[in-house]
């Protein structure tokens, strides 16, 4: 039996950091979620309320609506990013003049802080001063007002997310595509497979782990998006873009309802885990099982 002492010693810093910054805060949030706690209210003490926060959230129409909007946002944003990211990665696999320059420019949104992205997009879309409403009005006669039209506000939050995060997907998928061996593609070409068959039967199965990892990362990010949307629309008009992260922020900071905010946070974490697990089971576990059967 090999000694694992060295392994545990090397892992120790990571485990300690994870415990302090990941597990302990989670346990604390879970603890707070079972209490009524408004530290700035008339009674600042934490009072155990027997799961009433969870009882409240299953009837909270605002929370349920924000979950529905968040799922819609995550679906459109992540699906578009994966498709666009894959197409751009395929483009970067080919040689063309100015490829290095274009690749650098394309990656720049990644280094911009989300709050700055939100500010820039707000400036670009504000009806009186923004370039996008101006161009839409002068070219197509479309009167775009992000503060009045819920569908436009929703679409803009999705487009902003796509603009910001597609480069991440491109880089991940590009790394996967570059690392693929050439032989299966050459064999498929010799066998007379067309481009679609090569994509469907060779490329896609071989980069599936990379796609899945990217979907997980982007899905988790999309489900907890706050700052960009807060800056662009502030959750409006009405509650059309009040995604669940923004809803939690409003509960915890302006309303200082820490107990209920924690309960909502725990449920959002739960939903994220369930969705990722279902994706994993649907796309990896069952397929691997069929292959070994």
């Amino acid at each position: 039996m090999r000694s694992n002492a060295v392994g545990w010693l090397l892992l120790a810093p990571t485990i300690v950091i994870l415990a302090i910054f990941g597990i302990m805060p989670f346990v604390y949030v879970l603890y707070v979620a079972f209490h009524q706690w408004n530290p700035f209210g008339a009674n600042p003490l934490m009072i155990y309320n027997n799961g009433d926060n969870f009882r409240r959230l299953v009837f909270d129409q605002e929370f349920l609506t924000s979950i529905a909007f968040t799922l819609k946002f995550a679906f459109f944003a992540v699906a578009s990013e994966i498709v666009l990211g894959y197409l751009l990665a395929q483009l970067f696999m080919k040689e063309f003049p100015g490829k290095g320059f274009f690749r650098t420019i394309h990656t720049l949104p990644l280094i911009v802080a989300p709050i700055v992205v939100g500010s820039v997009w707000r400036l670009m879309t504000t009806p009186s001063i923004g370039i996008i409403p101006y161009l839409l009005k002068s070219w197509f006669g479309i009167d775009m007002n992000i503060g009045r039209d819920a569908n436009v506000a929703f679409a803009l939050t999705v487009i902003m997310d796509i603009w910001h995060w597609t480069p991440l997907v491109t880089l991940t998928l590009l790394a996967a595509l570059v690392s693929l061996p050439k032989e299966p593609f050459e064999q498929a070409q010799i066998d007379g497979a067309n481009r679609w068959q090569i994509f469907w039967h060779i490329t896609l199965p071989m980069i599936r782990p990379a796609i899945l990892a990217t979907v997980f990362i982007r899905l988790m990010d999309a489900l907890r998006t706050v700052d960009e949307v807060w800056m662009l629309t502030g959750g409006g008009p009405g509650a059309a873009t009040r995604y669940v992260g923004l809803h939690i922020w409003k509960l915890v900071f302006p309303k200082t309802d820490y107990g209920y905010g924690s309960a909502v946070s725990v449920i959002v974490l739960y939903l994220t885990l369930v969705m990722c697990w279902l994706l994993y089971v649907g796309l990896v576990a069952r397929r691997d099982q069929k292959r070994t059967a």
Binding site: G51, F54, R55, V58, F59, I267, Y270, L273, V274, W277
Partner: peptide, 16 residues
């Protein structure tokens, strides 16, 4: 893991 998922889902649906 699956047991905990279902436990939480069942509790929430029951409350609702």
């Amino acid at each position: 893991f699956v047991g905990i998922y279902l436990f939480v889902a069942l509790e929430l649906l029951w409350m609702r």
